[in-house]
Simulated scan of single mutants.
Amino acid sequence: MRLLVLLLACLAATSCVAPATRTATYQNPVLDTDFPDPAVIRAADGLFYVYATQGGDPNRNIQVARSADLVRWQMIGDALPTKPGWASRTQDFWAPDVREANGIYYLYYSAKPDVALTDKARGLCLAVATARQPQGPFVDSGRPLQCGEGFINIDPFAFDDPATGKRLLYWGSGFGPIKVQELSPDRISFAPGSEPVDLVPVIKTENPAEYQRLVEGAWVIRRGDYYYLFYSGDNCCGPKAHYAAMVARSRSATGPFEIRPRPLYLVVEADEHWNAPGHNSVVSDDAGQDWILYHAVDRRRPRAKLTDDMNTRRIMLLDRLVWRDGWPEVAGKRPSSAAQPAPVVR
């Protein structure tokens, strides 16, 4: 009888995920479709959800996939099926991040406002949407969180500081620094009187080998006495793609952050198989092992269609993080291609 009830409940749901069976090994990619800027959470239902920049066929404003084991992923639609009123005629929905608080899921993302269609001085905006379920549908709060020129206001990442109890939002690029600012208790506006704090600067150089000429894609974790700020640069995609994931650390969530020189600051960079790896998120498995999800371009298939630019098909990879002398990296600082031991998920 209990089995029948479970089957009926599953059929009544929009989709079902099979109970996890132990996966001994996996091999990259874990999601072989264009899925840029992956941001992962483990939701209250015990499943993993990962969100990505717009894409797919048909196009989804915010892509979302679900997994029971971090290895086998199922695309489950559009997390933001209805565009916000202030961005109803544009199609630039970038780099989402999702956090849960008190049963509500908050989706932070970037979007181009409609006014930018006629005013070229107007750039992308930070935005927030909410839902009662991790898969959505998320509904925008009704107004941008912050707008500005160019692509300064991109790649938001929300973080609750366990030391201070403050709700923080990291964001940034546009050839400027990664920033952080305190959010209000409502999580959809900045705290009154708060100001952005610059954290990771760009390195102004003509050296094409320098990744930190542009910085973006912040992701923060706390481990021991340190906060680790992952970030990426400098050119995510296209014919001149040159991209890697890096890391800085601090004893405070709002800095200052220690940044080591290259190559020590690298978490993962390109090799002969994978180009332009970066824009990562981090998650722990049930054994306490940290894993990094990130996008990269398969050099053997660098675009989805022949009419696309080179290095625009960014697919999702998974790798174990190794800690060396208090700093994280992927083994060898290169993406894995061979079979690897899988995450432990019970």
Rank of each mutant, 00 (worst) to 15 (best):
L168D: 14
A121V: 01
C125W: 03
P177M: 00
S110C: 07
V180E: 13
A111N: 05
R132M: 09
D155E: 09
P134C: 06
D92A: 11
K120A: 14
D160E: 14
V128F: 08
C125E: 03
Q133R: 15
K112W: 02
D155K: 06
G165Y: 11
A121M: 03
Y105K: 03
P144A: 04
T164G: 14
Q91A: 12
A111S: 13
V139D: 10
I154T: 12
Q146F: 09
F159S: 05
V98R: 04
D97Y: 02
D160R: 14
L107C: 05
D92I: 06
P144L: 11
P156L: 01
Q181I: 12
W171M: 10
V180Y: 13
A163K: 14
K112P: 01
I152M: 06
A101H: 11
F175R: 15
V128C: 05
L168V: 14
R99Q: 15
L169W: 11
T164K: 13
P113M: 02
G142R: 13
G103C: 11
I104V: 15
L145T: 00
V98N: 06
K179C: 04
F159M: 04
F93W: 14
A101M: 00
C125H: 04
E182P: 04
I178N: 09
P162C: 12
R167V: 08
I178T: 03
P113F: 06
A101Y: 01
K120N: 13
T130R: 15
C125M: 03
F151Y: 08
P156W: 01
P96F: 12
F138S: 07
P137Y: 07
L124C: 03
E149G: 15
